[in-house]
Amino acid sequence: MIIDEASLVPIFIQVAQWLEEEILNEHIREEEQVPSTNQLAAMYRINPATARKGFDLLVDEGILYKKRGIGMFVSGGAKELIRKKSKERFVNETLRSLMAEAKKLGLTKKDVISIIEEMEE
């Protein structure tokens, strides 16, 4: 994980997004324990309070759950939750910025769609 200091996305949200990505990639699987905020803070040189805030966000969303005295774990069904959330992000951010970029190049929505249709999967 590289924290992007220039990004307008708050650091704790970047931490949460990093963990979501690792869960989607199955680097960390459902029902597995996630790294401690302490490990994360030490490894990436970020304040533990910031790391914790990012993890708490995922607890609130049901992606992680806490086991008292042990740590935080990935919920069953977390991947599905993240996928749903990421789809929204894909539409609201990725596709929007893609369309903005296309507009700069003088490509219409139709052009973009036909390019996508011609692409090999």
């Binding site: 200091e5 401690s36 905020t37 302490n38 803070a41 030490a42 304040n47 533990p48 910031t50």
Partner: peptide, 23 residues
């Protein structure tokens, strides 16, 4: 960072190494 998680204290760190310490 490890100590701050286990046993939080108040720190003031004067530094010129801003970039590497800012997190």
């Amino acid at each position: 960072m490890e100590q701050q998680e286990k046993n939080p204290r108040t720190y003031i760190l004067s530094t010129h190494l801003i970039e590497e310490m800012s997190g």
